[in-house]
Design a binder for these strands. Structure first.
Lengths: 238, 238
DNA sequence: CGCCCCCTTGAAGTGTGTCAAATCGGGTGG
DNA sequence: CCACCCGATTTGACACACTTCAAGGGGGCG
């Protein structure tokens, strides 16, 4: 925990937050200290329960989680994926209540950060909270467009491109290469499809040479070309 | 209470904001003054252009607008409907940039409100901003679930129920009755369907006695029953 | 009257879902 | 090291929700 931030378990999270807003030593110190007593959660565990009060923002240090909504007949929608460096409950409302459950998709470690009201006005971390919220919103909007107006092939390509960019922010992806710790069923629940169809579309993407899948990693061979094809638009940091 | 607020053009907006957070006379005065120089926009006009800086929050006084995303091949997605009393750009980030265009769906009047930074810490209006942002988010999540996991019949019912509740907040709907100034094509673009299919589903809803459509008004005959059927969950004010 | 926009209806096509079974691969225990 | 198991992926045949294309009708309005 003590050594250089570059090698600590918080490195991806710090990379992302630094990319969102310039952080000074005090901010970094805050994060490193918080990361020192991180919390571990196994797959399928709930990080946040629907309706629960969000006392303090959480920072994902490693692993993936998802905001999720279940219907009584078994249908399930992954609303939003949360990646390392993502914040939960950093929105403007300090006394907010969780609008959805958040469950761990892989093993997750996370830590608690200060509430907005505990931060100095103008602190870099506060700016990072704001930027993170703005990005959250743009990813939600992207998800709506995916589900509403893209076909299965485009949905998958678009999602992969978004994940690549988001992970790249945390230094966890680059050059078209990204980890993908999702089952095809989870991808289906994210994209409003069935796992069977996701499987077929992934194969099509492979056959047409757009991607390679191996060992939980995806390689997007021509990110720019694919982005053009599905009209992917990169979210802008506010 | 400001005298005659009940009859002013800002009445629905004030009703909604008051429902989100208790407003004192100073807050109400601010709104009424702002509403005094309202701005008028005709159908299809852009309230906000994509990428434009959001200098100050806008309050919709009357009419409907929508956040929208257009694809180059003509496909179009309505991301989010904005109703009287809704705020544009009230999020945490004062220096944010519009993530999407906002266009007027009907004739719209709106006014500018103070930025967050110009409001007293703890002001009722600031709380209303926060609550409004929280609601925005839960409506976005609801939209994702609709598009991802509900079929056409359920999507329409769910949307009508949401609109009813949202309009009721501003005193513009109640008892299952609400205005609906949308063409079927707009509903289609909102719900990721074609206008042809929206038409058929609306007829089915009428035939099965769920709704009545007349003169731009919808009557939902058994809101609770329908809500149960499509598993509609009312958004909670934070 | 004629135009335009919106709603309505029908017939045919297709993308995606459903169901079911086979295969793969990684763990675990004997 | 093998046997077994379980979850995940893969494949095929078929069904259906929704789209597409096309034509017609209604109502407001210049």
């Amino acid at each position: 925990m003590i050594p250089a931030a570059g090698t600590s378990a918080a490195a991806p999270a710090i990379a992302r937050l630094s990319a969102l807003a310039p952080l000074d030593d005090a901010d970094l110190d805050l994060i490193v200290k918080a990361a020192a007593n991180a919390q571990w959660l196994g797959r399928r565990n709930e990080l946040v329960r629907h309706g629960e009060a969000l006392t303090r923002p959480s920072l994902i240090l490693s692993g993936w989680a998802a905001r999720i909504r279940d219907l009584s007949d078994g249908r399930r929608q992954l609303l939003y994926l949360m990646l390392p460096g993502d914040l939960i409950g950093a929105s403007a409302c300090d006394d907010a209540v969780a609008a959805t459950s958040v469950v761990a998709i892989s093993e997750v470690t996370l830590c608690r950060l200060p509430r907005r009201s505990e931060l100095a006005c103008g602190a870099g971390l506060l700016k990072a909270y704001n930027a993170s919220c703005a990005l959250d919103e743009s990813y939600l909007l992207a998800q709506i467009t995916r589900l509403g107006r893209l076909n299965a092939h485009e949905r998958i390509a678009d999602l992969l491109l978004e994940l690549h960019d988001r992970l790249a922010l945390a230094g966890l992806a680059g050059g078209g290469r990204l980890p993908l710790p999702l089952t095809q069923e989870m991808i289906a629940d994210m994209l409003g499809l069935t796992s069977v169809h996701v499987n077929r579309m992934l194969q099509q993407l492979r056959r047409e040479g757009s991607i390679t899948l191996a060992g939980g990693m995806v390689m997007i061979h021509d990110p720019a070309g694919l982005a053009d094809l599905v009209e992917y638009r990169r979210a802008t940091v506010c």
